[in-house]
Design a protein around this nucleic acid. Sequence first.
RNA 1: CGGAGCGUGGCGCAGUCUGGUAGCGCACUUGCAUGGGGUGCAAGGGGUCCCGAGUUCAAAUCUCGGCGCUCCGACCA
Length: 569
Amino acid sequence: MRLSRYPINTMKETPAEAEVVSHQLMLRAGLVRRLAAGLYSWLPLGLRVLQKVERIIREEMNRAGALELVMPVVQPAELWQESGRWTEYGPELLRIKDRHERDFVAGPTHEEVITDIARRELQSYRQLPVNFYQIQTKFRDEVRPRFGVMRAREFIMKDAYSFHLDEASLQSGYRTMYDTYTRIFTRTGLTFRAVRADSGAIGGDVSQEFHVLAASGEDAIAFSDADDYAANLEAAVAAPPAQARPAPQQALRKVPTPGARTIAELARFLQVDPARCVKTLIVEGAEQQVVALVLRGDHELNAPKAQRLEGVASPLRMASAERVLQATGTEPGYVGLVGLKCRVYADHSALALADFVCGANEKDTHLTGVNWERDVTGAAAADLRSVVEGDPSPTGKGRLKIVRGIEVGHIFQLGRKYSEPMKALVLDEAGRETALYMGCYGIGVTRIVAAAIEQNHDERGIIWPAPIAPFQVVLVALNLQKSARVREVSDRLYAELTAAGIEVLYDDRDARPGVKFADAELLGIPHRLVVADRGLDAGRLEYRQRRDSASTEFPADGALAFMRARLGT
RNA sequence: CGGAGCGUGGCGCAGUCUGGUAGCGCACUUGCAUGGGGUGCAAGGGGUCCCGAGUUCAAAUCUCGGCGCUCCGACCA
């Protein structure tokens, strides 16, 4: 591609709307343009990256035996009513009416449509297992779209759905997709990690996420330094402490603690370690009563874990100050365990404490020397907290480390969640009707592009991993307007490399060298060739990789062979 | 949905408090010079100052209403 015929519009200044570096660079490099909140156009250069990613996905899905199809973006409401999600999905589901006032949705996902296809097309166990996928636009009416294409309302997703006769087949299909995803993300050249997304079924691979590791990631993931345990922080299991609880030493004592509402204030006031304090959080219960959740002072409540507990409202809601007063007789900040009437869940590590500090259910007052059994009874043990760096791995091997990631893939075993209400049945070997088992597997295609930039950039711009770079080589011709020799050599080189199947972005603009170098680096093309009189005098060209800080020279004659060697083709 | 902020050529901003000819930098066009790291000089083109109503001799500026966008939080994946 000749840059003189390619209307790129690079920007020196960062548009004010862009907060994260991938969004800034995508705008500055002219990959995307915003049309409205969460809606982006992909300009030619950005589309090339997107298509590289899609190609890798397609090749690996096909290799795994999945079958590509395309389903409509606009879907009839009836299907969503049938699955129950017309009412369950909430305002993220964009509902639209056609000219006859009939209800439709702009598809945020396609379980309903694919299940409808499955129940029509699949009649026999002989047709199973089967996996259908598509690469297609989704619409989710996000409350707050942000970070450019990272959390857009309209985005491209690869979604796949597998159908099986039984659970064993589902698990095997799920493992195949796990392996396929691993190959896909490996091939994109990104550093990633597969993590457990759900701890509900112990040891079961019911749902896993694939994260591109980047400091700016929205998710925290925990992994063991000694084995392959890795989980989203939301789902990471905090192992109960190994040591038994020490015997009580101190007597229960009430102490005045004026103004000490937070654990930090309390610890400072009493000169005790926050890890020897206990915090009692009052949350709304599933019915009328509130529920108390007890954590060690230095630990954080994990909402997904808490809202799974019996009797706790889901989604989790903290009780209002009035409700706290009503239930405990005091205000938040002084709530404690002794004499507490409501249902109590205590985190394992809080339960392991002896002689600890907690609120006295009385303003400006706490208790010290509190002990389980002796002073407090009836607390149920639970895993309530988020793990922290250095916690023992729940597998028993190693300690947990925490890094940040961007979720780019998610695989689920759905079981019969859709097939039963939507009556997707086949006949088994014995001629009996049986509901299909189903798995679903998503990849955020547009998000991968942003994640790639988050993970690979420097102060000059993008540094594309080679497999998804829009072009392999940028050919920078210096002063070609004046130098017939430079123009001739560059034109010839461009033609030669292009004919050899190499994707070359040829900067043949009448621009100063500095402009061309700066743009080449902003655009992040992995390999750069420079043609200039200075080198040609010695019969040489110049080569440099995007990550390198210095160039090397090589004989101009052998350019094609030289580049082939660099590209490994 | 709660809180905060911002809407002025394509982009980044000043001007608004204190009403009086719509500006600067980048980008764009043309010319000359320059030609290895966003070059210099000169001449240009391009703006319903988000929209509507009001106040006023006069509104980018003041008042009211609306719309859009961004950030933080909540929510969601």
